[in-house]
Amino acid sequence: MKNIFFFIRRYFTFLSFLLLQVFAIILLTRSSKAHEAFFTDATSELTGKLNKRYSNLRSYFSLSETNRQLAEENTRLKNLLASNNIAPDSSRVMYTDTTHVDSSGRYRKFTWLPARVIGNTVTLQTNFLTLERGSNQGVKKGMAVIGPQGIVGVVVETSSNISKVMSLLHRNSRVSAMLKKDNNAGSIEWDGNDPSILTLRNVSKSAKVVKGDSVVTSTYSANFPSHLMVGTVASIVEDPSSNFYTLKVKTATNFFNVQYVYLVENTRYAEQLQLENTPMTNQ
């Protein structure tokens, strides 16, 4: 502080000279438009450069906030894209419009609905798929889900516009299946190891199984129509202690890239299930 005073004292003449010059220039700029424009231009050039650098520096500190805002903006704009708006679903109407009794007097048993897969896991022990179709569009609990190549799973939960599907790749998944060749039925399960390999249990040893045999859904299933592709036999495990084969089945559906599926509704599902689950009383 002392040095500052010394400095001011020493250069007092020069400082007052500068002060008066500056004062004169200020007066000049205030009186003359041309001078005002010149000095404003010059100063704003300088301050503009400095401000630009400073804001460049500062922008690094707000990068995360800017990123968040940009992400929000992107989401908002993407929601405006035409591709997000799906056409109103008329397929349901088309299917249900047909009478349950067709012209040859037969009753309709299965109704098919298309659905887009919007969520899918394959790496867990309990894998689910999420479909963009819910109870408002006619999805009910227990409906079978079938992909273009083979069966996929069973609907376990529905909300108004979304439904949740228990994939075949779920520890608790049980689907009745049979060998296409001789209709020997068994149960399709998953051991939780390989997402492309299922297990078909309880196939009688009387069946003449070879590798590559097709496995299809059985006629005993309440929710699946019969004779839908499940997979092909990959290997045969012979258990000497039992009368049954345990077959490793390569899935027909590629669970890694399933995009569109069909939901199948059995119009008599509830009735069949109710009857099957009724305890026998007169035993």
Binding site: F12, T13, S16, L20, Q21, F23, A24, S31
Partner: peptide
């Protein structure tokens, strides 16, 4: 200091007549 102050006032009084305040004050200082 007084010299510069006088010069400033002198230049400024001329400027007041010519309407360009400060134009002559600066060279005078």
């Amino acid at each position: 200091i007084a010299l510069m102050a006088i010069a400033f006032i002198f230049g400024l009084s001329l400027d007041f007549f010519s309407g360009t305040t400060g134009l002559h004050a600066a060279p005078c200082v």
